[in-house]
Simulated scan of single mutants.
Amino acid sequence: MHPIRLGLVGYGKIAQDQHVPAIHASDRFELVAVATLGQRCPGVPNFSSLAELLAEGPAVDAIAFCTPPQGRFALVEQALKAGKHVLVEKPPCSTLGEALALIDEVNAAGVSGLFAWHSRFAPGVRNAVQWLEGKTLKQVRIDWKEQVRKWHPGQAWIWQAGGLGVFDPGINALSIVTELLPRALFVESANLSVPSNCQSPIAASLQMRSGENVQVVAELDFDHSVNEQWSIELHCDEGVMRLDAGGAQVSIDGVAQSVSEEGEYPAMYGHFARLIDAGKSDLDLQPLRIVADSFFVGSKETVAAFYE
C-alpha cells in the first residue's frame, strides 16, 4: 500500500512537537511539503503559502492544518477545492458557522475530513469507554489547569477574539467528556475571567448537565503553576475512575490501571488513514459548540491584566 502523501500548513509549536513526529512514525503517511511563514521544516520542501504549495510543490493527497483558528476556514476551503483530504487541528475554526460550512464542503468535495480532537485519542479514553459500559454515571469533575507561559509562549492570537483563551486547552477536556457521555452535554452556567488587556478568558468555571442525571462541572485555569493538572473524574454508583495527564494515566478507586502505550497523535493519524481508506469523515463539533454556549450564557468578570 502506497503511503498517503501529506502536506502540512503551519509549522509552529504543535506541529513541531506533535504532528511531525507522529507523521514520521507512521507507515501510512509521508510528509512531502510544508507551508509556513515562520521556521522552516527540515527535510522537505517549504513554501510560503498553501497556494504556492499546491501550485508548485510535489503532489499531495491530504493536508493537515496547524495554523491558528482565525483565518483557517479559507485555507481549508482552498484545500477542499483542490480535492484534498483534510485534517484540521482543534478547534477547527473560530466560529461554529465556519465549521458547519466546512462540514458541508467536505461532503460536497467527496473527500475525507477529520476535526482533530486529539485528546480523544489519549490511551486512557479507551479504558474509560470500556469501564463505563453497564454503569450508572452520576457526576463528572474536570480540572484542566496549566501555565500558558509554558505551553503557549508568545502566542498572542490566543488572547484575541476567536482565540478562545483558556478554552484552547480546556476544549481538550470537553472533547473527552463529550466522547464518553451517552447523551448531549448542555451548559447551564459559566463564569469567565477575562484579563483587562485581553479579549478571551484566562479562567472559567462551568456547570453543565447531560440528560437528567449527570452533572458535569469544570474548572479551567490558564495561569496555573508549572505543574499542570489535566484530570477528569467519572463518578458512578460502582466507583470512581480518574483520568490524569490528559488521559494518559488511569486509576479506579485510587488503583492505577494499565493503558495502551500508543500516543494520542499517532493514534489520531491512524484514525485519519482509516477514514481515508473507508471514504468517510469524522467532523464532530460538540466540543466547539459547548465553548460557544459558554460564551453565550456566561457571565464575564474583568481580572488583572495578563503579561508574559
Rank of each mutant, 00 (worst) to 15 (best):
H2Q: 12
P3K: 14
Y11P: 00
I14C: 01
A15T: 01
D17R: 09
H19D: 01
A22R: 04
I23T: 06
A25S: 15
A33E: 00
V44A: 01
N46R: 02
S48F: 00
L53Y: 04
L53G: 04
G57V: 06
A64E: 02
F65W: 03
T67A: 00
P68A: 08
P69F: 03
P69I: 06
P69D: 05
G71I: 06
F73R: 10
F73I: 02
A74D: 12
V76S: 00
E77D: 13
L80N: 01
K81C: 04
K81I: 09
K84P: 00
V88Y: 02
E89D: 15
K90C: 01
P91F: 13
P92R: 06
C93K: 03
S94N: 12
L96C: 09
G97F: 10
E98D: 15
A99M: 07
L100A: 14
A101K: 09
A101H: 06
A101R: 13
A101P: 01
A101T: 14
E105F: 07
A109Y: 05
G110A: 08
G110D: 12
S112D: 02
F115R: 03
A116N: 13
A122I: 02
A128E: 06
L132E: 08
E133R: 14
E133C: 02
G134Q: 10
G134A: 12
K135Y: 05
K138P: 00
V148G: 00
R149F: 03
K150P: 00
G163W: 04
L164V: 06
D168Y: 07
D168V: 09
I176F: 08
L180S: 10
L181M: 11
L181I: 10
L181P: 12
P182N: 09
A184T: 13
V187C: 11
V187M: 08
S189K: 12
A190F: 08
A190V: 10
S193M: 10
V194H: 07
V194Y: 05
N197V: 07
Q199L: 13
S200F: 02
Q207L: 15
R209I: 10
S210D: 07
E212F: 03
E212V: 11
S225I: 12
N227R: 11
M241S: 09
L243R: 13
D244S: 15
G247R: 10
V250H: 06
V255M: 13
V255D: 12
S258C: 11
V259G: 09
E261Q: 15
E262P: 00
E264P: 04
P266I: 13
M268T: 03
F272W: 14
F272S: 06
R274G: 06
L275S: 11
G279Q: 13
G279I: 14
S281E: 08
L285V: 13
L285Q: 12
R289M: 15
I290E: 01
V291D: 06
S299Y: 04
S299F: 05
K300A: 14
T302S: 14
V303N: 04
A304C: 04
A305W: 04
